[in-house]
């Protein structure tokens, strides 16, 4: 192996890595918010309609989902860890907010595409 080989390989790895990163950051905005509880799709909301929804999760836990300005986020959850609230705002296809204690998954998808609920984990 020559020095040029290593340079070439590193450059290609950088291009590939950078491309991967950039393309994922600029992924399409979604249009649909899918809410599933305990692995089952329960509600589908329009991402372009501003609203506040109360989600009753597994074991009666409550989450407050807000859709505003084409973004979805959790404002409240009656669980101790508050991970879903800290996740912040999502709007790109494939992005999700997960609340493990209540088994709630909020995922963004696009019209015409099926919600990408992980079939393996179901």
């Amino acid at each position: 192996m020559k020095k040029n080989d290593i340079i070439l390989i590193l450059i290609l790895l950088c291009i590939g890595g950078a491309g991967f990163f950039v393309l994922n950051l600029t992924k399409d905005s979604g249009s649909i918010v899918n809410v599933s509880i305990d692995g089952k799709l329960t509600d589908t909301y329009d991402l372009s309609v501003d609203a506040t929804y109360e989600i009753t999760g597994y074991d009666g836990g409550k989450n407050t989902l807000v859709i505003k300005d084409h973004e979805a986020y959790m404002t409240e959850a009656d669980c101790p860890d508050q991970v879903c609230v800290k996740t912040g705002k999502i709007h790109r296809v494939g992005e999700s907010i997960v609340c493990l204690p209540h088994r709630v998954v909020v995922e963004i998808s696009k019209e015409g595409e099926e919600a990408e609920v992980d079939t393996v984990s179901q």
Binding site: I9, L12, L13, I15, G16, G17, A18, G19, F20, L23
Partner: peptide, 12 residues
Amino acid sequence: VYYLPVLILSGT
């Protein structure tokens, strides 16, 4: 286009 980075990496 989304496949491109993956294919560059795998090709390398």
